[in-house]
């Protein structure tokens, strides 16, 4: 059975697109068939993060309005044959995204893939609702700061009300992904702690991605960090999150403050 995931947040710039691309890659790296779908019409980004921007011919809107077939619009990753991208349109108007059209495309995707990961636009408007509409699972991306957490809370309320699953009386599976976590800043109380965020949102944690240069480098390379630098801390955190999504229980490792670690080493040596 195909699983549909929406990656959502409410607030912009918290790492949704990065997470969509990287979780998609991490799942595809285990041999499962994955499609990542860009719902951010007009601000498409996912193709860049996947290094496929020059290969976009048709997009989601073309498939919805019938000017292209799904297989024509799907782009297979050059490095990983199990990973596919359905890009958004950069030029079309958001209103071309119709509820019926989205339902049809999702159904067609479900026939071919194990995982369909939808990259939601920021906000709580139509685009975000359409992206979450058919999801079985939501990955809520939050940065450890008040405004991001509050917006996530708002989005969780919408997941419980506006998704097909919720309307049918079911429960959408929700997971919290804390991204851009900086242990040093958290130790200085400049950011919320993981516990604070969990306490406010009361949604189970699926991973903590550290703030990392590697992520930035990966997006500039057009290659998700699990592919470009699989041994880096953010890649390991994303691999673990992907395993948890498949139902595996993996112990959670919270990024620690580096200075502490050095301090310990230093202390031992001096003694």
């Amino acid at each position: 059975m195909a699983k549909v995931i929406v990656v959502t947040s409410g607030k912009g710039g918290v790492g949704k697109t990065t997470t969509t691309a990287t979780l998609g890659a991490a799942l595809a790296q285990t041999g499962q068939n994955v499609a990542v779908v860009d719902f951010d019409v007009g601000l498409r980004n996912l193709d860049l993060m996947m290094g496929a921007e020059r290969r976009v011919v048709y997009d989601l809107i073309n498939v919805i309005n019938g000017s292209a077939k799904l297989p024509q619009a799907l782009i297979r990753d050059k490095r990983l044959e199990t990973l596919h991208l359905l890009p958004a349109s950069q030029t079309r108007d958001k209103s071309a995204l119709t509820e019926k059209g989205v339902a049809r495309v999702m159904k067609e995707l479900e026939e071919q893939f194990d995982w369909i990961i939808c990259d939601s636009p920021a906000g709580i408007e139509r685009g975000a609702i359409l992206a979450m509409r058919h999801a079985d699972i939501a990955v809520i991306v939050t940065n450890p700061e008040i405004s991001s957490v509050r917006d996530s809370d708002r989005i969780i309320g919408m997941l419980d009300a506006k998704t097909q699953k919720a309307e049918d009386g079911g429960d959408i599976e929700k997971h919290l992904l804390i991204s851009r976590y900086d242990p040093a800043r958290s130790a200085r109380n400049e950011m919320l702690s993981i516990d604070d965020v969990l306490d406010i949102l009361s949604v189970p944690l699926i991973g903590v991605i550290p703030e990392s240069e590697e992520v930035l480098r990966a997006s500039n390379l057009g290659s998700p960090v699990t592919m470009s630098n699989p041994d880096s801390a953010p890649a390991r955190a994303y691999f673990d999150a992907a395993r948890r999504l498949t139902g595996e229980s993996v112990p959670m490792s919270i990024p620690e403050e580096r200075r502490n670690l050095f301090g310990k080493l230093f202390g031992r040596r001096a003694a």
């Binding site: 408007e125 139509r126 609702i129 809370d153 708002r154 969780i156 919408m158 506006k162 009361s202």
Partner: peptide, 25 residues
């Protein structure tokens, strides 16, 4: 499209909500 309306019609004098009330609700 952002509106959530869940009518819980009831004759009771106590409304029990056993989920968190989220921002905006």
């Amino acid at each position: 499209e952002g509106d959530i309306t869940t009518n819980t019609e009831t004759d009771e004098t106590n409304l029990l909500i056993d989920w968190p009330v989220r921002s905006g609700q």
